[in-house]
């Protein structure tokens, strides 16, 4: 049983599900609010931003790359979008289109640089993080933006309902978008040719070249996809907090990376699934939420998250190390 589990392709997801189930049971017993619909919707809303970006990060990691600059991309997209809708008006769809377009454009810059400069993606994207963000702040002088058109303040909800005791619940746009992004990314990775080529590229780049895959096009796709999701997430975030602050997103890039890695994506490429990433993000979200509900001071949250990351990556590495490098010879008896 244990051996089969260890070689099971979805072992990581299974393992994470166990942990999350155990944690849910514990939190459900320890607090009254944990399993309430209100709490669930709350958590979903506040993690919609991180969740959307983690889907993009997953795709980048699978292809064997990494992107650190997406927070800067999100910030630039958010600013551009805000300035346009404030000065020229528009609607929510336009807001997403603008932010998405900016994201795709900046993502393509990453893609081209990484492909042609042949420098590790981490270096290029750290550089572009500084370039995008530095330019933005230099141009905008780091001003906050509050004065959105009134339509922007009304977060559309797909449906809302009132329970017997009179509380109103709403499934708002950010939650819908989060689910939509998860579903479409899962579809992309599992059912489309591009998605499978990304796994192939991350698993063995040389072989992908020999298969005749267009590496430049795949890379561009990956970084543009990340950019697009960063743009979408940035509008979601602006909707939720109702302001645009230049320093609210940059600095969270490693947080997203951590959630995706917790979800089983490999930093060396080729491995990782969307369900895994959903579980990774859920684990982080549940820890924060659970600790809050249990009245643990928010100062402690990061300690827990840090400890979970350290333990999780250590256990993974240790079990892989124990399994690898074994020589086996059939001995004649």
């Amino acid at each position: 049983m244990w051996r089969r589990l260890r070689t099971h392709p979805q072992r990581n997801e299974i393992f994470l599900s166990f942990i999350i189930a155990a944690l849910s049971v514990y939190l459900g017993l320890a607090t009254r609010e944990f399993f309430s619909l209100e709490n669930l919707l709350d958590v979903l809303l506040s993690y919609s931003f991180l969740g959307i970006m983690s889907a993009g990060m997953l795709v980048v990691l699978i292809s064997g790359g990494i992107d650190i600059s997406f927070t800067a991309i999100a910030t630039v997209a958010q600013y551009t979008m805000s300035l346009i809708i404030i000065n020229y008006g528009g609607n929510l769809l336009l807001a997403f289109l603008i932010a998405g377009a900016v994201g795709i454009f900046l993502g393509s810059v990453n893609g081209f640089l990484i492909h042609y400069l042949k420098v590790p993606a981490i270096i290029i994207t750290i550089a572009t993080l500084n370039v995008f963000y530095g330019l933005l702040i230099a141009v905008t002088k780091g001003r906050w933006i509050y004065a959105f058109p009134t339509w922007f303040y009304r977060v559309p909800s797909l449906f809302s309902f009132t329970t017997a005791d009179g509380t109103e619940y709403a499934v708002t746009l950010p939650i819908v978008l989060l689910v939509a992004v998860f579903v479409s990314t899962a579809f992309l990775l599992r059912r489309t040719a591009v998605g499978r080529m990304l796994y192939a590229l991350g698993g063995n780049q040389e072989a992908a070249v020999r298969m005749g895959y267009n590496i430049l096009r795949l890379r561009l796709f990956v970084y543009c996809f990340m950019g697009l999701l960063a743009g979408v997430a940035s509008v979601v975030q602006a909707e939720i907090v109702q302001t645009v602050a230049p320093n609210s997103i940059v600095g969270r890039e490693l947080e997203v990376l951590a959630a995706v890695v917790l979800g089983g994506a490999s930093i060396t490429g080729g491995t990782g699934t969307l369900p895994g990433t959903v579980l990774g993000v859920s684990l982080v979200a549940m820890m924060h939420n659970g600790l809050t509900l249990m009245g643990v001071s928010s100062y402690w949250h990061q300690v827990f998250v840090g400890a979970v990351i350290v333990i999780s990556v250590s256990v993974t590495a240790w079990s892989q190390r124990a399994g690898r490098g074994r020589h086996r010879v059939e001995i004649e008896v």
């Binding site: 392709p9 599992r190 059912r191 489309t192 040719a193 591009v194 998605g195 499978r196 080529m197 796994y199 192939a200 991350g202 698993g203 063995n204 072989a207 992908a208 298969m211 005749g212 895959y213 080729g270 491995t271």
Partner: peptide
């Protein structure tokens, strides 16, 4: 080969990928 993919996908998938958008 692609070590991170299954036997089936290594054999049947790589050609398939060149022939359409969906798998």
């Amino acid at each position: 080969l692609f070590p991170n993919l299954t036997v089936a996908e290594n054999i049947g998938g790589t050609r398939h990928l060149r022939e359409g958008l969906l798998v």
